[in-house]
Each structure stands twice: as structure tokens, then as C-alpha cells.
């Protein structure tokens, strides 16, 4: 994993089935993301979008029952979440978790060290404090984040908007190869969405493979998707270009639901079962 790290350029999901507490959620997802590409993942509530993100990161509650997730052909399904993170996979959480008593700056310093030096062993030196502080200060300035953030505890007492900005800050610090943004624009006002979108575009640039899970079009304005995928009932039922995203924003999911009645039925069932 380590030696090929810098060469990794493709994240592939092949026929992925995932169950939560025995209940199937994903039913054969296929998706390939190359660095530099932007993919939009859309779909009604309960269709499995967040599940896909959490499964890619390796959440233990999301159990893969079939299929593979690969980085350049290497199956990572058995990898711990931190191994995936160190290989360059990142997710901005829809609902970020707070860690009481752990300062944002300390957390990010540890995270940045591990991600930049995947071979680092527990207990080995972290990035020098001075160097790290300088970089963090700069990135916070770029994102118009109050410097006081660094001293606060990770997501503790953050407003919805602050949490989302903190996720983008982590994205900027960790510079992953692939980033899943799970509704990073929700909870932000119009100005904040614009700032977030611009930041993501700047951070991502040509180097990052982006999977943007969103209900809104604002985030996609600055990050026009090369591919738009529509998820329904735990499957990607349709893939198109930017025009598909535009259509869904204008007209909603009626056409999709009608075109794929089986998946739609499955989706209704999943929503009724209210699997988180």
C-alpha cells in the first residue's frame, strides 16, 4: 500500500453490496473515480448515498456482503479506516462527530502527520509544531475561519455551518487523493456555500477525485461534475453528465422513480424501515 501510494489514481467500486444489521442497503453499486474527476451523487432520501460514503471509509457497522472497493486494483475492504485515510481517501461527514476535550489543532496535527507520512508508527514524532501552526493559520485564513477555531475542541459546540467549514479545513489540510463530500453544503447559508464551493474547487484542483453528495446545485456550480450518478433503492440507476444534475435540480426525481419502478419500490421500503 505504501510503495504504490503516490501512484494511486483510481478508486473503483465494483458490484458493492452493503448491509446494516443484516438489512441490505446497497445492492450492487458500480462506480469508478479517477483523480481529477468530479462526480455528483444524487438521489432521494434513503437511497443509500451516505451508506456508500461510510462503506468506502470502512465503518464497521456497514458490512460489505459482496463486491470490492479498490485503489488501483488493490481491494481495500479489509483495511481499517485509518489505512484508507492514509492511502488518500477522505470523507467530509454529513454529521461531523464531536470529540470533547481534543483541540482541533492537536487533532489536525496528528491527522496531518499520519496522512502525509503513512508509514509513521504510533509514538513517532509529529510534524513540528511551528511549521504546522503556520500552515494551519494560512489555511484557516483562506477559508475565512476564525483563528480561535484551532483552540476549540473538535466539533464541540460548533454550529452546523461551523462544522461544515471545519470539515473543509480538514480536507484542505489532509490533501487527499479522493474526497467524498457528504452534503457539505447543507447547513450553510448562500455566502458560505459559495465560499465552500470555491475552496473545494481550489483545494481539489486537478489533483483530487471528488464524489459530491448533494441536494443543491450551488456546490456543483463551482465544481461542475464530469459525471452525475443517480442513486435509487441502493443502486446507481442512471449516470450522465452535468446536464443530468441540472435536470434533477429543476424537476426532481419523478422521472427517475417512474423509469425505475423496482428500484423505487426498494427505496420506499428502505425509507419505511428507517435504517439510519
Amino acid at each position: 500500500m505504501i510503495s504504490i501510494n503516490s501512484m494511486i489514481d483510481t478508486l473503483s467500486i465494483k458490484n458493492l453490496h452493503v448491509a446494516v444489521e443484516g438489512k441490505p442497503i446497497l445492492r450492487g453499486v458500480n462506480l469508478e473515480i479517477r483523480r481529477g474527476e468530479t462526480h455528483a451523487l444524487m438521489g432521494p432520501n434513503g437511497s443509500g448515498k451516505s451508506t456508500l460514503g461510510l462503506a468506502i471509509m470502512g465503518h464497521s457497522k456497514y458490512e460489505p456482503t459482496e463486491g470490492v472497493i479498490e485503489l488501483n486494483g488493490v481491494n481495500i475492504l479489509e483495511w481499517e479506516p485509518d489505512q484508507r485515510a492514509r492511502a488518500g481517501v477522505f470523507m467530509a461527514f454529513q454529521r461531523p462527530i464531536s470529540i470533547p476535550g481534543v483541540k482541533m489543532a492537536d487533532f489536525l496535527r496528528h491527522a496531518s502527520t499520519n496522512v502525509r507520512r503513512p508509514e509513521r508508527k504510533e509514538g513517532e514524532e509529529l510534524i513540528p509544531m511551528r511549521e504546522f501552526r503556520k500552515e494551519l493559520r494560512q489555511k484557516m485564513e483562506d477559508l475565512a475561519i476564525n483563528q480561535e477555531f484551532a483552540r476549540r475542541y473538535v466539533n464541540e459546540g460548533f454550529s452546523g455551518g461551523e462544522m461544515k467549514r471545519a470539515e473543509i479545513l480538514q480536507l484542505a489540510m489532509l490533501q487527499p487523493k479522493f474526497a467524498i463530500l457528504d452534503e457539505t453544503d447543507s447547513g450553510l447559508d448562500a455566502d458560505a456555500v459559495r465560499l465552500a464551493s470555491e475552496s473545494i474547487a481550489r483545494i481539489g484542483g486537478q489533483k483530487m477525485g471528488l464524489l459530491i453528495i448533494t441536494h443543491h446545485d450551488k456546490l456543483l456550480e463551482h465544481n461542475p461534475p464530469d459525471f452525475t450518478h443517480v442513486m435509487l433503492g441502493g443502486r446507481i440507476v442512471e449516470t450522465g453528465g452535468v446536464e443530468l444534475a441540472e435536470e434533477l435540480h429543476r424537476q426532481g426525481y419523478e422521472r427517475i422513480r417512474k423509469t425505475y419502478p423496482d428500484a423505487n419500490e426498494m427505496n420506499q421500503e428502505m425509507v419505511e424501515q428507517a435504517v439510519p
Binding site: 471509509m57 465503518h59 470523507m91 476535550g101 487533532f107 491527522a111 499520519n114
Partner: peptide
């Protein structure tokens, strides 16, 4: 969930628990 979040940021499970325990006392 806290452990998972920290692991997603590159901390090993052990490092994550350590940070969470030390953080627990921070208050």
C-alpha cells in the same frame, strides 16, 4: 462513532482511543 471519525482522519484505533480518553479529562 468517535473512534471511527478519528480513524477517518488517519489516527489508528489506538491513537484515537488515547486521544478520546485524554480528551475526556480535559474538561
Amino acid at each position: 462513532e468517535l473512534i471511527f471519525y478519528a480513524q477517518c482522519r488517519g489516527l489508528t484505533r489506538n491513537e484515537a482511543i488515547r486521544a478520546i480518553v485524554v480528551g475526556f479529562f480535559q474538561q
